[in-house]
Amino acid sequence: MPAISIKNINKTYIDQDGNEVQALHDINLDVAEGEFVCIVGPSGCGKSTLLEIVAGLLDATSGEVLLDGQPVHGTSRDIGVVFQDASLFPWRTVRKNVAFGLEIARVPKEEREERLKRYISMVSLNGFENKYPAQLSGGMRQRAGIARTLAMNPKVILMDEPFSAVDHLTKCTLQEELINIRQAENKTVLFVTHDINEAVFLADRVVLLSPRPSTIQKIYEIPLEQKRGRSDPLLLKIAAEIAKDINSGGQDIPNNYWGNL
């Protein structure tokens, strides 16, 4: 049974001018347990909208999301979310931010301490436990946000462009760390990004959404081990194919099109 099943999802909303806009059209996707799936697509195609529906933060117009075969209604502790902004409480230290969900869930103190130690170490924040968000770099704040999500031990982690606000070198480091975390925790991950190279470097599959109203335009298998080289010829080839397909908007492009540019 897939960890996450997205079935016939449609989303329509009314824009500021009173016009009906269809953001998502008949989205169907199964994400297997332990699988890492990236969603890419042109700007404004509804990637984040789809993720919010899966998270239970936004209602679909029609269709349903299943977690382990059960319908998702509202938010769930089994689905963790990491956003672009780590959204840490500025008045709480790293340790207390990571502990926040555990406190709300009334996790026993001994178990809470074990989880804090494990996940703060896993995201390389040892020595920064008592720092406040204002004392941290952007990458460190995002690490703390990831640790906070991991500490709740969700079955599925949803990530919405979590590394887009940091510099390139920090992004590369965070990507490597995420691969290590994924291997250690064997979590199911659904990851939204506008960065094609990031998608092919991280994912088992990359899902391309078409321009609005978004459908699944194409799915790309990444037949490589999780530990990858960024310059692997196959990754570069798949990334180039995705870029070509995004630019085509789902339309066929002549074979000699790119050579004539």
Score class of each variant (00 low, 15 high):
residue 157 I to G: 06
residue 97 N to C: 01
residue 145 G to E: 04
residue 90 P to C: 11
residue 145 G to M: 05
residue 192 V to H: 02
residue 113 E to W: 03
residue 138 G to C: 02
residue 93 T to E: 07
residue 110 E to T: 14
residue 142 Q to P: 05
residue 121 S to Q: 11
residue 121 S to H: 12
residue 117 K to W: 04
residue 94 V to N: 02
residue 96 K to G: 07
residue 81 V to F: 13
residue 130 N to D: 15
residue 178 L to S: 02
residue 179 I to G: 07
residue 106 R to K: 12
residue 91 W to R: 05
residue 127 G to R: 02
residue 196 I to D: 08
residue 153 N to S: 13
residue 122 M to L: 13
residue 88 L to P: 06
residue 102 L to M: 09
residue 137 S to T: 09
residue 128 F to Y: 13
residue 102 L to I: 05
residue 107 V to W: 00
residue 168 H to Y: 14
residue 95 R to M: 08
residue 104 I to V: 14
residue 79 I to N: 02
residue 191 F to I: 08
residue 180 N to F: 14
residue 157 I to A: 06
residue 143 R to A: 07
residue 184 A to L: 07
residue 189 V to R: 01
residue 97 N to G: 00
residue 131 K to Y: 15
residue 178 L to C: 04
residue 120 I to N: 00
residue 127 G to A: 07
residue 198 E to N: 06
residue 100 F to M: 13
residue 169 L to P: 00
residue 134 A to C: 12
residue 189 V to I: 15
residue 84 Q to D: 12
residue 80 G to I: 03
residue 172 C to H: 11
residue 112 R to W: 00
residue 98 V to L: 09
residue 121 S to M: 06
residue 144 A to S: 09
residue 176 E to C: 04
residue 120 I to S: 00
residue 197 N to S: 12
residue 99 A to W: 12
residue 176 E to R: 05
residue 179 I to W: 06
residue 77 R to T: 10
residue 160 D to K: 04
residue 137 S to N: 08
residue 89 F to V: 08
residue 167 D to K: 07
residue 150 L to N: 01
residue 161 E to I: 03
residue 141 R to G: 00
residue 107 V to F: 01
residue 116 L to K: 01
residue 124 S to N: 14
residue 171 K to V: 05
residue 91 W to K: 04
residue 135 Q to L: 11
residue 147 A to W: 01
residue 114 E to G: 03
residue 195 D to H: 04
residue 150 L to C: 03
residue 138 G to A: 01
residue 161 E to N: 05
residue 146 I to C: 02
residue 142 Q to Y: 08
residue 147 A to T: 01
residue 77 R to F: 08
residue 141 R to K: 14
residue 105 A to N: 09
residue 135 Q to E: 15
residue 123 V to W: 10
residue 184 A to N: 09
residue 178 L to N: 03
residue 100 F to R: 10
residue 116 L to Y: 00
residue 187 K to I: 13
residue 160 D to I: 04
residue 165 A to N: 14
residue 125 L to P: 02
residue 132 Y to A: 11
residue 97 N to E: 03
residue 127 G to E: 06
residue 84 Q to Y: 13
residue 136 L to T: 06
residue 149 T to L: 03
residue 185 E to L: 07
residue 161 E to C: 04
residue 91 W to E: 06
residue 76 S to D: 15
residue 116 L to E: 05
residue 134 A to G: 13
residue 106 R to L: 05
residue 78 D to M: 07
residue 99 A to Y: 11
